[in-house]
Simulated scan of single mutants.
Amino acid sequence: MQNRIEASTSSELPHLYIGTHPTYGFVAASGRPLTEHLKTWLLERVMFEPVPGTDLHRLTEPSQDGIRRARQAVSDIRNLGIRVQADYVLDPLLTPDLSGAAPGMAHNERLVRIARAATAHTARRPAPSAVTLASPAPAATPRLQTASRSPSGRSR
């Protein structure tokens, strides 16, 4: 019976671990033995690259929206049927996606900045002067001079 429990527990172990590393940033390591080829192929598809001298893979350019990209990688790998254990912040099943709230606020702030810029007065566009609504005097309408026509209807 104990063999049966160990077998079921070992089959539930994750294939990959994804978390943070103090030196390499967002990293992935294999939990259950995956072939090196499969692990490399899978992780390169979600923008992880091998770290030389270790069995780790790190997220490429983690400074460019790294948390969102690592969370997306966890989700994409799970959609392929691979079991992944991720840090709390990187696990989309455990923590809500907070990136949706920030762009909305940033979008509103951007609209406020645009509105302020549109109403601001600059050296190129001075403040409008006081406008009087007096009606201008009617100007004489110019008359069009028509050329005399020949009897055939053509002009000379």
Rank of each mutant, 00 (worst) to 15 (best):
A7W: 02
S8E: 09
T9P: 00
S11T: 12
S11F: 10
E12P: 08
L13V: 01
P14F: 00
L16K: 12
Y17R: 07
I18F: 14
P22S: 09
T23D: 10
T23Q: 10
G25N: 06
G25P: 10
F26C: 04
A28T: 06
P33R: 06
E36M: 04
E36I: 03
L38S: 14
K39R: 10
W41F: 14
F48T: 03
P50Q: 05
V51S: 01
V51G: 00
P52D: 08
T54D: 03
T54K: 06
L56G: 04
H57V: 06
R58I: 00
T60R: 11
E61S: 12
P62A: 04
S63W: 05
Q64H: 15
Q64A: 15
Q64V: 13
D65I: 02
G66N: 03
A70V: 01
Q72W: 03
Q72L: 07
S75M: 04
I77D: 00
I77M: 01
G81Y: 07
I82M: 05
V84G: 00
A86E: 08
D87W: 09
D87V: 09
L90E: 02
D91S: 05
D91C: 03
D91Y: 11
P92D: 06
L93F: 04
L94W: 04
T95P: 00
T95K: 05
P96V: 13
S99P: 02
G100D: 14
E109A: 15
E109W: 15
R113T: 09
R116K: 15
A117E: 15
T119R: 11
T119P: 01
A120Y: 08
A123P: 03
R124V: 04
R124F: 05
R124N: 08
R125D: 03
A127H: 11
S129E: 15
S129I: 10
L133Q: 12
L133S: 11
L133K: 09
P138D: 06
A139M: 11
A140I: 05
A140S: 08
R143Y: 08
R143N: 08
L144E: 13
Q145G: 10
A147G: 07
R149Y: 11
S152E: 14
G153C: 02
R156W: 05
